[in-house]
Structures are given as structure tokens and as C-alpha cells.
Design a protein around this nucleic acid. Structure first.
Length: 323
DNA sequence: ATGGTTTTTACTGCGTC
DNA sequence: GACGCGGTAAAAACCAT
């Protein structure tokens, strides 16, 4: 047991999951020969066997140079690398970037302008309504979960703000809407000081706990959300009311926790466990009849943990009184 | 992967109603 | 004897490296 460890119990540790992939080697899938790109037609052809490898319509990766033909020639790619990451798997309408018609002939300047406008609008609509749909579904989910957890209005709003930001920052591709929605709610609940444990959250979500945790970390990191480790005190009121204990217990519990904090006993421990223990200890001190198993029930914490924690709480209490 | 820390699980003994 | 409580050892979970 060390008192220097200031590990925080969080569900928010960051994992580095970023992988910077190098550009893939461009070789012919058939014969392995070098590929030569034909700027004229936007095709890539194998030197050896003449296989024509289709160029991608709209590059789903770095989108910003899809219209720049010169760049494209220099860094030509084979095929569309990540179509699965797109919500529609790249199946919705795409308009080629080249100003050629179906036969490879150049378009008149009038036509070119027209195509340009079409591209713009097609892109706008495509992304807009996919995002709208996305948002609608997510907000529905957030609402559903929030009411299942008895979370107030402001938390839902925060959650939806977080979700929107995630959407704007293109954090969605590769992650489920559900997962991100759940994570947003989790984050919002914590930010608002009415945290729900991962267990509680995952109970009402359609997503596995693991994924929620992972997505949560990701979202928090990408959006630079600042969320402190949950404060044990914020769980107290809920436990107290679930157990139908008087308000006196709540006050006492808070007091215990504050003392513990001053003594630094709480670092690295589960906030939920601490809260549960404080409630138990407090009801002991105020002569309420509550069993450990009852508390462990509402807090979703093992009795053993409650025992360990509440001893520590009482010790901390004594120490404080001696000063 | 590994290691250190915390939490959980499972079991046991003790006292009381 | 069931129940509440305490303790312990081993397993599992978790975070950090």
C-alpha cells in the first residue's frame, strides 16, 4: 500500500489507437508489375499485363484534393481504400472529377461549369442528409437512454451537443452511431455531475460495455473534452434515495467523503465503491438499519469492497478528529 | 505482453435473533 | 438455522508501461 500513488480511477484512460499507415505499394494485383497512371483518362494501367485498374470516383480518404488532377497524377492510388468506412459504403451517387463524358471526350466549358455545380450540390446533399438521418437516430437513442436512466433535460442537451460535435469532426466513420451516442451521454452525465457508471449505461445501451469505453475515450480525446474523474459524492444522493434513507445519512456520508478526500485516501479507488461505503458507514453512524448487501445491490458494488472502503473512511474520520 | 493495483468471487467462522 | 458481518485467498478486471 503506497500513499504516493495518485492514480486516478477513471474510465477514461487514453489508449493510443492511431495508426499511420504508409501509402501502399502500387503494383498490379494480377501480375505484380508496376502501375502507370494515365492522366488523360484517369486510369491506372499495369505495364506488364495491361490490366486497367479503375481509378476511384471520389476519394473517401483525404477528400480535399479529389478535384486536383495534377496532384492526383502524382499520388495516384489503386481503388478506393476505405469505402466501408462511409455510411453508404460509397454506393450513393458520385460524379467523376474529370470533365469528360462517358466516351472520354472533353466537355464544353458550359457543361463543365454545370458539372461543377452538380458536384457541389450532390456532395452537399449526400453528406447533409446522411448526417441528418444519423443525428436523428442518435438523438432518439440518447433520449431513450437518458430517460431510462432518469437523467435530466440538461444532460440530454449536453449529450446531443457532444454528439453533434463528434459528427462535425467526422468521428463517426468506423464507429457505430449507437456507440458514439452512448458515449456522448456517458460523458454528458459525468460533466453535469450526475454520473452513471459504465455498468448502468451499458445496461440501457445496445452496445457492449467495452465498446462504450473505447468509443468514449476516443471521443473525449478527439474533442478535447475535459472530464474529471467522477466525484464519489455525486453518487450519494441517488443511493440514499434508492435505499429510502433519511437526509441525515446523506449529509453524514458527504462529510465522510470530504474527510477522506483531505486525507487523500480516495485516489485510485472506484468512486462508486467509495460512495457506497460512505452511505453504509453513514447509516451505521446514524443508527439506520441497512445491510451491506442492500447497499451493494443499489450501488452495484461487491460487499467486500464496501467493507474495505468503509473501514478506511472511518479511519480517516478518526484521524481528522485528532487534528 | 507484463506488472502492479483494485475489485470480485467464493468460502469460512462468529455472533445474534 | 438463517442472517448479517468480517476476513481471506485466489481469480478477474483494470490501468499503465
Amino acid at each position: 500500500m503506497t500513499d504516493t500513488t495518485i492514480r486516478r480511477y477513471t474510465d477514461e484512460r487514453e489508449y493510443t489507437e492511431e495508426t499511420e499507415d504508409d501509402e501502399e505499394e502500387v503494383v498490379c494485383p494480377e501480375c505484380g508489375g508496376d502501375l502507370v497512371s494515365d492522366g488523360e483518362r484517369g486510369e491506372t494501367v499495369c505495364e506488364e499485363c495491361g490490366l486497367v485498374v479503375e481509378e476511384d470516383e471520389i476519394d473517401p480518404g483525404p477528400e480535399w484534393r479529389a478535384f486536383d488532377a495534377k496532384e492526383k497524377d502524382e499520388k495516384s492510388r489503386v481503388g478506393a481504400p476505405t469505402t466501408n468506412m462511409m455510411h453508404d459504403k460509397g454506393l450513393s451517387t458520385n460524379i467523376g472529377w474529370q470533365d469528360k463524358d462517358a466516351y472520354g471526350n472533353s466537355l464544353s466549358s458550359r457543361q463543365r461549369e454545370k458539372m461543377q455545380r452538380l458536384r457541389t450540390w450532390n456532395e452537399r446533399f449526400r453528406t447533409r442528409d446522411s448526417k441528418e438521418r444519423n443525428l436523428k437516430q442518435a438523438l432518439g437513442e440518447i433520449d431513450r437512454m437518458a430517460s431510462a436512466l432518469g437523467l435530466p433535460e440538461n444532460v440530454r442537451e449536453t449529450a446531443s451537443v457532444i454528439y453533434r460535435r463528434a459528427l462535425d469532426e467526422d468521428l463517426l466513420p468506423g464507429r457505430s452511431i449507437e456507440g458514439v451516442a452512448t458515449s456522448s451521454l456517458y460523458a454528458a452525465a459525468r460533466q453535469a455531475g450526475t454520473p452513471r457508471s459504465l455498468d448502468e449505461i451499458s445496461a440501457v445501451s445496445r452496445v457492449e460495455k467495452d465498446e462504450i469505453a473505447r468509443t468514449y475515450r476516443y471521443v473525449v480525446r478527439e474533442l478535447g473534452l475535459e472530464i474529471q474523474p467522477a466525484d464519489p459524492e455525486s453518487y450519494v444522493p441517488r443511493f440514499v434515495s434508492d435505499l429510502e434513507l433519511p437526509e441525515e445519512v446523506e449529509r453524514r456520508a458527504r462529510q465522510l467523503l470530504q474527510n477522506a478526500k483531505e486525507q487523500g485516501v480516495h485516489s485510485g479507488k472506484s468512486p462508486v465503491g467509495l460512495a457506497a461505503a460512505s452511505v453504509y458507514a453513514a447509516s451505521l453512524l446514524t443508527n439506520q438499519k441497512v445491510t451491506q448487501s442492500e447497499v451493494s445491490e443499489v450501488a452495484n458494488i461487491s460487499e467486500v469492497t464496501i467493507r474495505n472502503r468503509y473501514h478506511e473512511l472511518l479511519e480517516a474520520e478518526e484521524e481528522i478528529q485528532q487534528l
